[in-house]
Amino acid sequence: MSNVLAILEQRDGTLRKVSHEVVTGARRLADALGGEVHAFVCAAGPISGVDAAGRHGADMVITATNAAFGSYAPEGYARTIAERAQAGGYAAVVCAASAQGKDLAPRVAARLGVSLAADITDVGVDGGAVVVTRPVYAGKALLKVRVASKPAVLSLRPNVFTPVERPKAGTAESVAAAGEGGRVVVKGITAAAAGALDVAEAPIVVSGGRGLKEPANFKLLEELAHAFGGRAAVGASRAVVDAGWRPHGDQVGQTGKTVSPSLYIAIGISGAIQHLAGMRTAKVIVAINKDKDAPIYKIADYGVVGDLFEIVPRLTEEIRKLNG
């Protein structure tokens, strides 16, 4: 059996973007194994956007419906996915290392009695076995790991498997999932700010540190993020989170989030090792700091030295021009 089960994610009946990354990663693995991708989503009813799974390379999309599956139901989802994985004899089960995936993947793996290769940044096949890469020691080393267990259960680090279009027929079917939602019940999500992108998922992250001087000045960063037209989120260093200027959910770094955006702009951030731990895998790093010897410049691709209060408004203005 060389098929791959790709676990999609929905919230409020809409497919989450990270699902496209999962299908993309699963497709890459299935191609190497010579198998199919079966995309699988737990939901209370039809999900809008599932057809996109076909576009990204799913041969089949299965919606497992259960009245208790509107919100994330950890135990119900884990049971349903594990049963499917077993019944389908899959070579691999792939999900996102998102908030939900980090909770779900270990449960699925434990139910199947197999290991989990978590938060991987690369996947391939070598001599018939699934081989993955995963960062350890806060990104200061990479482990290459052969996954011996069947199925190989993998979670993909968000923002690493850039979605590519690989159209497949993508037949869709809906199956009723039996059983209860489980003992652990999600009552709801209180949104941080309407429509705000999460730093862990945004393609562009604009982060601020103690150099911003006071909380109100984060307005400069919000304006810059806004200029990117809904593609950017505002992040923060721990110094400003601990000071209560920004919520913990915005913190980037070892005790915050690990982000891999295509563009990371560090503003008034010195670049402590624990901060770098959270953003060193960004594709392009820009630093704005008045101290030309700040450690952030050691990993930045591009640096602008000087006073952020002068530089950031100009940057915002230019980005606005670009995005019309």
């Binding site: 990993i299 640096g303 030295v305 000087g306 006073d307 530089i311 100009r314 940057l315």
Partner: peptide, 15 residues
Amino acid sequence: GRIVGEGAAAIPELI
């Protein structure tokens, strides 16, 4: 990496 320049004047080059 490289330092593109100093101050707001470096922004067009950065872009």
